[in-house]
Design a protein around this nucleic acid. Structure first.
Length: 863
RNA sequence: GCCCUUGUGGUGGAAUGGUAGACGCGGCGGACUCAAAAUCCGCUAUCGAAAGAUGUGGGGGUUCAAGUCCCUCCAAGGGCACCA
């Protein structure tokens, strides 16, 4: 027994060294053992870890250590998502080379992660900016090209004028670049695309099989893919004078049932028809210019304003001879969806309604609730799903339901050969070209003779040149004096390298597979992948719910098509953890203040150095801009990694946000000390076996120990860390009480040792260093990492006596202790004797007597 | 606008349709101490002296029984957004 405090500063590095030297976390394929692959989203090497990393990697580590103890062969690797703009910004701002900056950051963050005591297999570490990683990416891209998964097309792209690069649709948020925040412009550029839309249907369908993903994420992906079933058909066109034109207008619609309510057609400003008409119409030229200048961003402000420009062309109604619909170019019609044009049915669509009101077009209701007077004529009627709605004013469709009408219209178009049923998706192909330096070079050569030539695989990797400058905007690779000038590998002509690099989302779309065989000469070794894939548990922030996770799901399929991987869904189970939030402090002038500079005096906050009063702002996600950050390194230095880990798991459920508080950290630190004291005290109670009958006191503690163990096992299996921690507190409390008993008997002494053992093993996944120290104190010679998770005895988990609550008319009136599993009639007799029951019955007759075995009794009385 | 999630003590949060508030923080009281820190013990939803009554965002419903299921409204958070 010792009265000394637990010294994390001394113990933690010692155990980290032991784990490292014993190489116990290095995973080796072993087909005779069940595997478990746990992965946290790998970090961008920004330079320092933040609390979000601590939370993310702690959760993963608890799972990894728990599964290891349960007998699984665990793979728990770590790497670096190391390409990207911040490295180039550092180069431009501070003159440091992106490569040097990145690798220094990796070294610093690796040290920090190691100080957390994570059970990582560092022998599999990888960095995406390393040629040994990206050469395989290049090889796979070439294979993707051959497999028809790559397309180069001139397209209207999102151009970020600050970063001087193209952004994917997914990277444009509210019309602004996701990184720079600059208003995005439209430009036409030849770009590389990965054909993710080839898999739209499959990526959507397979979401149903991802039962261990949060429903929220699946729903977000479903909406993003955006499948809709509709009809594509053609209108005949005529000019002002009714002369049939030699072309048709093909539209896509999901509401072909409302065809009789159509009163106009509208095409996008970029539509071919609008382009052609503008050749002879200066007003239209101006209109088109206006629309494109508006861009995606300003449109938010102008949203309500629906504008159109009549083309002087008319569409003939397919079912009403003599009826014609004016065709407009309109600002609210998107070129990128369907055919880039629509027919408008103002009575049943808000936008069409607005447009029709503005331009004085007819508004004819064609669907209405059955047997109900027509709707308010001042508003469009947008019906709800499943309501009892029928067609009206619609000729041969009158009286049909919406579904019937759709069928009928589609059938008529198909019979006439002027239309077909069609499924449309919102998902676009993935533009992967970036005009940046710090990324994986696209392994392609442009030859004036052979055109596009993939770099021969024997010439891979195409290595980024290091002698580049960052003194002007744009792509440094384009400015490099020699790098891009090469001979064509096919014909030997003077040719040029592609200077675009890949979107960094490609790097992170397959790293999970590379971890299976990080040193292999092929992207992924088949045997290793067959053993380790899929990732059994993936953990990360919900901000990646769409981009990263959808790209990864696509990439796995593309790798399947090119025989690099044999697993479609890379992440069997997904967990999205909440953020770490903190109070914000502000000076009078609005400047944000770091929490370390804020001090509490007499109930008010002041700046520690200047003494200025501070105002407390909201509790928000830790961010550099608001300065409400706590540096994990200083927390680990003062409290130890175990305390930081414990705090990250306590109190808040893991999917919810957690607020970092000094008091909470202090509380976690006190508990580590308490565990240390309890275990030391318990270790004094012999170590012998106990054979014989356990007394009541011993049995009671034993029950708590085994029950806690069962509960913690269950909670850890389902990632309910906060509940597991509550159970551990309970056992610690029970053990503390038992230790306070004067002169415990031999049976109690045995149970105290057993409880201390259980307790230590139970908190070991969360506080691994402390657990190893405690385990040693308890006299064990093999470390915790080599100790199996204990199994609770079934007989001790259930009581043979249960407390049954007694209700009268649903209100709790009394309770009674009875033997478990007592027959209903016996329970009734016993319950009727209770004082509380008699009082509540007040002599009234019992109508019904409900017994839920071993839980509750409800006596229903009249009156 | 559409879709989703969440509303429980002073506070973070527990609760297979079956005793609401486990466990932690905070608070109050006590022990130890010359004293403090640390530690340990007890109490801590609200009203009430008690019996009891009330109580899981508001209103309604299903049920012997509702925080939990259904309808509706309100609030907060998130996602998508001229997607035809």
């Amino acid at each position: 027994m010792t009265s000394e405090r637990y010294n994390s500063r001394e113990a933690e590095p010692r155990w980290q060294q032991y784990w490292s030297e014993s190489r116990c976390f290095e995973a080796i394929e072993d087909v005779s053992r069940p595997k478990y692959y746990v992965l946290e989203m790998f970090p961008y090497p920004s330079g320092r870890i933040h609390m979000g990393h601590v939370r993310n990697y702690t959760m993963g580590d608890v799972i990894a250590r728990f599964k290891r103890a349960c007998g699984f062969n665990v793979l728990h690797p770590m790497g670096w998502d190391a390409f990207g703009m911040p490295a180039e910004n550092a180069a431009m701002e501070r003159g440091v080379h992106p490569k040097a900056w990145t690798y220094e950051n990796i070294a610093a963050m690796r040290t920090q992660l190691k100080s957390m005591g994570l059970s990582l297999d560092w022998s599999r570490e990888l960095a995406t900016c390393d040629p040994s990683y990206y050469r395989h990416e290049q090889a796979m891209f070439i294979d993707f090209m051959k497999a028809g998964l790559v397309e180069r097309k001139v397209s209207l792209v999102n151009w970020d004028p600050v970063d001087q690069t193209v952004l994917a649709n997914e990277q444009v948020i509210d019309g602004r670049g996701w990184r720079s925040g600059a208003v995005v412009e439209k430009r036409e550029l030849a770009q590389w695309f990965l054909k993710i839309t080839d898999y739209s249907e499959e990526l959507l369908q397979a979401l149903d099989s991802l039962e261990k993903w949060p429903e929220k994420v699946r729903l977000m992906q479903r909406n993003w893919i955006g499948r809709s079933e509709g009809l594509r058909f053609s209108f005949d066109l005529e000019d002002e004078h009714g002369n049939l034109l030699n072309e048709k207008l093909t539209v896509y619609t999901t509401r072909h049932d409302t065809i009789f309510g159509a009163s106009f057609c509208a095409v996008s400003a970029d539509h071919e028809l609008a382009r052609r008409c503008s050749e002879s119409d200066a007003g239209l030229v101006e209109f088109r210019r206006e629309v494109s200048a508006l861009g995606t961003s300003e449109e938010n402000i102008e949203r309500a304003e629906k504008k159109g420009y009549a083309l002087g062309i008319y569409a003939r109604h397919p079912f009403l001879a003599g009826t014609r619909l004016p065709v407009y170019a309109a600002n609210f019609v998107l070129m990128g969806y369907g055919e880039g044009d629509i027919f408008g049915c103002p009575a049943h669509d808000q936008r069409d309604w607005d447009f029709a009101r503005k331009y004085g077009l007819p508004i004819l209701p064609v669907v209405a609730p059955r047997n109900v007077a027509l709707q308010d004529p001042n508003e469009p009627f947008i019906e709800k799903e499943g309501a009892d709605i029928v067609l009206v004013n619609s000729d041969f469709l009158d009286g049909m339901t919406v579904a019937e009408a759709k069928d009928e219209v589609a059938a008529r178009f198909e019979a006439a050969g002027t239309g077909e049923r069609k499924v449309n998706f919102r998902l676009r192909d993935w533009g992967v070209s970036r005009q940046r330096y710090w990324g994986c070079p696209v392994p392609v050569i442009h030859c004036p003779v052979c055109k596009i030539v993939p770099v021969p695989k024997s010439d891979l990797p195409v290595v980024l040149p290091e002698d580049v400058t960052f003194d002007k905007p744009g792509n440094p690779l384009l400015h490099h004096p020699t790098w891009r000038f090469v001979k064509c590998p096919q014909c030997g002509s003077d040719a040029q390298r592609e200077t675009d690099t890949f979107d960094t989302f490609i790097d992170s779309s397959w790293y999970y597979a590379r971890f299976c065989s990080p040193h292999a000469s092929v992207p992924v070794e088949a045997d290793a992948a067959r053993y380790w894939m899929p990732v059994d548990q993936y953990i990360g922030g919900v901000e990646h719910a769409i981009l990263h996770l959808l790209y990864s799901r696509f990439f796995a399929r593309a790798m399947g098509k090119t025989h690099h991987l044999n697993w479609d869904e890379p992440f069997a189970s997904l967990f999205t953890q909440g953020m770490v939030v903190h109070e914000t402090f502000q000076l009078g002038n609005g400047e944000w203040v770091f929490p370390v500079d804020a001090v509490l005096k007499d109930g008010s906050w002041f700046h520690a150095k200047t003494g200025e009063p501070l105002t407390i702002g909201g509790i928000e996600k830790m961010s550099k801009s608001k300065r409400n950050v706590i540096d994990p390194e200083s927390i680990i230095a003062s409290y130890g990694a175990d305390t930081a880990r414990w705090f990250m798991l306590s109190d808040s459920p893991p999917e919810r946000d957690i607020e970092w508080t000094e008091a909470g950290a202090e509380g976690a630190w006190k508990f580590t000390q308490r565990l240390w004291r309890l275990v030391n005290e318990a270790s004094a109670f012999g170590s012998g076996e106990f054979k014989g009958e356990f007394g009541t006191a011993a049995l009671e503690l034993r029950r708590v120990a085994h029950r806690s163990l069962a509960a913690v096992t269950d909670d850890l299996s389902s990632l309910r860390f906060n509940r597991a921690i509550a159970r551990i507190y309970e056992l610690a409390n029970a053990l503390g009480s038992a230790l306070a008993t004067a002169n415990p008997t031999a049976d109690v002494a045995f149970v105290i040792r057993e409880a201390a053992d259980f307790l230590t093993l139970m908190f070991a996944p969360m506080m691994p260093h402390l657990a190893e120290e405690c385990w040693k104190v308890l006299g064990h010679t093999r470390p915790v990492v080599e100790t199996a998770w204990p199994k609770p005895l079934a007989g001790l988990i259930v009581d043979d006596e249960v407390t049954i609550a007694v209700q009268v008319n649903g209100k709790r009136r009394d309770e009674i202790k009875l033997p478990k599993g007592l027959a209903k009639d016996k329970i009734e007799v016993a319950v009727m004797q209770l004082e509380g029951v008699k009082r509540a019955l007040d002599g009234k007759a019992v109508v019904k007597f409900i017994v839920v075995p071993d839980r509750i009794v409800n006596i229903v009385i009249g009156g």
